[in-house]
Design a binder for these strands. Structure first.
Lengths: 157, 157
DNA sequence: AGAAATTAGTTTGTTATCTAACTATTATCG
DNA sequence: CGATAATAGTTAGATAACAAACTAATTTCT
């Protein structure tokens, strides 16, 4: 070994590299299955509203998805244009808006879940639920660490 | 529990979700540290050429980074415009091109590594090398699975 | 050998995201 | 109270990736 390789840097790089590729593959794959007129971000928001209830502000949603506010504005606009969410102006604080999923949105979300289900089950069957269950807490912890770091850096802590 | 939640789907979703966020946070973070005139993709290619030697074709690089050929064309063009790589026409097969890192490219890469190093060491110190080492093989396996699936689907297997 | 298929690289057009900057509204503080 | 800060949402502009389609060169197959 002529050059003293920095193995620790390599480790982090490799992790980021694998994760980047997984993200890209997963996104393409999920987009293919979700529905012709919904992308993964739109579905994620729809799913969130269906599961946890509506009445969230775009800003709140942006934070929940670690996304910038402009990005969320775009997603909500598209969902609204499709009639899948309804946006309500704030009364108490007139800067705010509140987002609610519509019946059409619930239908679209149910439909997307239906389409997705076999594919997700296949992933679990082929790759294995144990490995996914092992991966999840590590990924969550790493995400939490990076997120915390970012908040500190941005002085949001 | 009124609705029978599909826990298996949730598991896969959560994994994808965490991974997506990690990818996004990591990219912003790394971009901040690498250098003013290099993004993560460009650095990755430069790093690859420095470590494993040049003489790769853009197509080969695209596969190595799980990227489309048009994307690699763009990255190589930008690196070439900065004088960090040299592109050589194929003699035997005149469709091909070969990419070599230049001295300026080696300098830029060394400089970027230098800037990155403290940040990467901090990640390892704070989050812990063990957890990263635990994460890596799982991520690699999951990536390999998804990649294999995609290849099969596209009939490249 | 010649037609058809494949491959390498590129061009074009689309999309999702980001940052910076703007408007309107509300909160803070001197 | 009134000026200044902060906040919610949006708009504008930039960028990095993708898919589809194109050109040129090579390989395969009949």
């Amino acid at each position: 070994m002529s050059e003293p390789k920095d193995l620790s840097a390599d480790l982090v790089f490799q992790v980021f590299n694998e994760i980047g590729i997984i993200d890209s593959l997963a996104n393409t794959e999920l987009t293919r299955h979700i529905a012709p007129n919904l992308n993964t971000s739109e579905f994620a928001v729809l799913n969130h509203l269906a599961r946890l209830g509506g009445g969230k502000t775009p800003s709140w949603l942006a934070k929940a998805f670690q996304m910038t506010r402009p990005s969320m504005t775009a997603i909500v606009s598209k969902l609204s244009a499709k009639g899948y969410v309804r946006v309500e102006a704030g009364e108490k604080d007139r800067r705010e808006k509140f987002v609610w999923i519509t019946d059409a949105g619930l239908d679209a979300r149910r439909d997307a879940l239906q389409r997705l289900k076999p594919r997700l089950e296949q992933v679990i069957a082929d790759f294995g639920a144990e490995r996914l269950r092992a991966l999840l807490p590590l990924a969550m912890a790493f995400r939490a660490y990076l997120d915390e770091e970012r908040n500190e850096r941005d002085g949001l802590a």
